[in-house]
Computed example of a mutant assay.
Amino acid sequence: MKHAKVAKVINKFKVALNVGKDDGVEVGHDYIVYRQGEEVLDPDTGESLGIFEEVIGRGVVTYVQDRIATLESSEILEGGRRVIRKSASGLSALQGLFVPTTEEVVNEPDQIKPFHQAIVGDLAKRV
């Protein structure tokens, strides 16, 4: 079986893989994109535990051609709450008068997380 690899980086959220319909890839398949790092040794025995896989991101196939698949990032950066504090400015603040500070709570929406610096040749495997 052919090892899936990044064949083209389209943008930070989308890559093209060198596998497609001919390799059994279908829209909706989940993949992780990773690159191989260094060998990891057991600290007690010195035995090789294998090659560390640095995960670049996770994506879902959104389009399939015969020999190419488009993979789009599917990881979510969770939104959150942010508090914005506003203090009064102008003369009253300079003169030392008491001016209340206002707070505004902003709910930030979830966002798609980009692939982390994906490059051509990074590996991909179905999960």
Score class of each variant (00 low, 15 high):
K5D: 06
G37P: 03
A4E: 04
F52P: 01
Q65P: 02
S48V: 12
G57C: 11
R58Q: 13
F98L: 10
N107V: 11
L77Y: 11
I112W: 02
I119R: 15
G57R: 02
P109V: 11
R82N: 04
T102F: 05
K12W: 06
D23I: 01
E103L: 06
H3W: 07
V60W: 01
A124D: 02
V105C: 00
K113F: 03
L97H: 09
G90N: 13
V99I: 13
G96V: 05
V120E: 15
N18K: 04
R67E: 05
R58S: 12
V9M: 04
T62L: 05
E108L: 14
V40T: 14
S48D: 13
I56M: 06
E72I: 15
T62R: 12
A118G: 03
Q111L: 15
Y31I: 03
R85L: 11
G121R: 08
I76Q: 02
E47L: 09
K14I: 15
G80R: 02
T45F: 03
V15N: 02
S92C: 04
V61E: 02
G121T: 06
E39Q: 14
G50A: 13
M1Q: 14
K8P: 05
D42M: 08
Q95R: 08
H29E: 07
T101S: 15
N18E: 04
G59E: 00
N18S: 04
K125Q: 08
D42K: 09
Y63N: 11
D30N: 09
I51Y: 13
V6T: 09
D22P: 00
Q117F: 05
Y34F: 15
T101Y: 07
I51G: 08
V9C: 05
L49N: 12
H116F: 11
E108S: 14
D110G: 05
G79R: 03
F13K: 13
A93R: 13
T62G: 05
T62V: 14
G20P: 00
A4L: 03
V33N: 05
L77P: 01
R35F: 05
T102C: 07
G46C: 06
P43F: 06
T62H: 06
F98N: 15
V127N: 11
S87W: 07
T101R: 14
G57A: 03
P100F: 09
K86S: 13
K5I: 13
S48I: 07
A118R: 03
E72C: 10
G50T: 12
T102E: 14
V25Y: 00
H3L: 10
L123Q: 08
I119H: 10
K8F: 12
E39P: 07
P109I: 10
N18P: 02
F98R: 07
D110V: 11
R126H: 06
V61H: 01
T62K: 09
V105G: 01
E26S: 15
R81A: 00
E26N: 11
V9L: 08
H29A: 07
A16G: 07
V106G: 03
F52I: 04
V83H: 03
F115A: 08
D110H: 04
E47M: 10
D110A: 09
